[in-house]
């Protein structure tokens, strides 16, 4: 809930500090509707990755490879369409399948071999990006996509940027999965206590696998939207996105230790980061320095540390209190 107020305050601050009227009497900056749509448009891909990571982190896992998988799927999509001569819908379906496959690779290594998710996805983080670079030989970018496809990323539909509709659809889907279906229950139980979940007869491995495969699938969708927005598919697509996605999830109140978390929180976290980035860019001071990207990076990192610290301090305090209470200064002799 706190995050919602922070978000509103943040938005209001930028609305007043970042909106100006230029010499011709036209309002420019943060307060314009165009800018607001821009925020939405630019936060779709990171937002999708954050949605993908929410179930994973609720199961006390992590997936560092989503950004790289985004890059790989974008390249594959471009290749299927351009070199393979496939129509866009089929190329997109194939790309989504590849994303699910990438997620399945993570899932298999994590559940079948009981390897820690951190190191597995660190390996695939490198592998997926490397494959993308190898396929394109570091230089090929696929462009000249048809208008109809670019519509998804660049035009408006029913008043909103077209990709926002896809994003909302996925958000609702993940929200239903986590909050209205038994899978979400299972994810939480696994995150709080994998052994407890096993003793309750839950199919722990299958549900962990589901979370990672879903993450791969959503990363592939993000890749397609990314390609449509920029009109090109290139190997470095989505570099570093995983960090912003993780930050959004943790800011949104999902515990990195698993169990606790919500999709609405993640959406607020995504919004907070997106507004910060765009808002900074509209502040005259920052505009003069031309450093919006960097400043939002520093602030996001700091924000993540603050959110984490705020998350553990109550626990530390209560532990300390408990320790003091448990040790009597002198032994009562009775």
């Amino acid at each position: 809930m706190l995050l919602l107020y922070v978000l509103i305050a943040e938005w209001l601050f930028f609305y007043f500090a970042g909106t100006t009227v230029n010499r011709r009497g036209v309002t420019v900056g943060f307060g314009t509707l165009d800018r607001q749509f821009d925020i939405l448009r630019h936060s779709c891909e990171i937002g999708l990755l954050a949605l993908a990571l929410t179930p994973v982190i609720i199961t006390a896992g992590i997936d560092l490879s989503v950004g790289s998988l985004l890059g790989l799927c974008a390249i594959l999509f471009g290749k299927f369409w351009h070199d393979g001569g496939l129509p866009i819908p089929i190329a997109a379906t194939l790309a989504l399948g590849c994303g699910a496959l990438g997620g399945a690779l993570n899932a298999a290594l994590i559940t079948a071999l009981r390897l820690p998710p951190l190191i597995v996805t660190l390996g695939t983080y490198s592998l997926f990006r490397g494959l993308a670079e190898a396929i394109t030989r570091g230089s090929v970018t696929y462009t000249n996509f048809p208008e109809g496809f670019l519509f998804i990323g660049q035009e408006r539909w029913l008043g909103l940027p077209a990709q926002a509709w896809l994003f909302f659809a996925v958000a609702i889907g993940v929200w239903v999965l986590v909050h209205r279906m038994t899978f979400g229950r299972s994810f939480r139980a696994i995150g709080f206590s994998p052994e407890g979940a096993r003793y309750a007869g839950l199919p722990v491995d299958r549900h962990i696998a589901l979370a990672y495969i879903l993450a791969g699938l959503i990363a592939a969708l993000a890749a397609i939207i990314y390609t449509a927005r920029l009109g090109q598919a290139k190997a470095d697509a989505g570099t570093g996105y995983e960090l912003f996605a993780i930050t959004a999830v943790v800011l949104g109140g999902t515990s990195i230790f698993g169990g606790r978390g919500s999709v609405t929180g993640t959406l607020l976290g995504v919004a907070a980061i997106a507004v910060l980035k765009s808002g900074l860019a509209s502040l005259p001071v920052v505009m003069r320095m031309n450093a919006a990207e960097e400043m939002s990076g520093v602030l996001t990192g700091a924000l993540l540390l603050l959110a984490l610290t705020a998350g553990v301090l109550p626990r530390l305090w209560s532990q300390r209190r408990a320790r003091h209470a448990a040790v009597p200064k002198t032994l009562p002799t009775s």
Binding site: A189, G196, Y199
Partner: peptide, 14 residues
Amino acid sequence: GVVLEMPIAHNMTM
């Protein structure tokens, strides 16, 4: 036996 952090209802239906 019980996932301590989860509500009674969720534990009972698990």
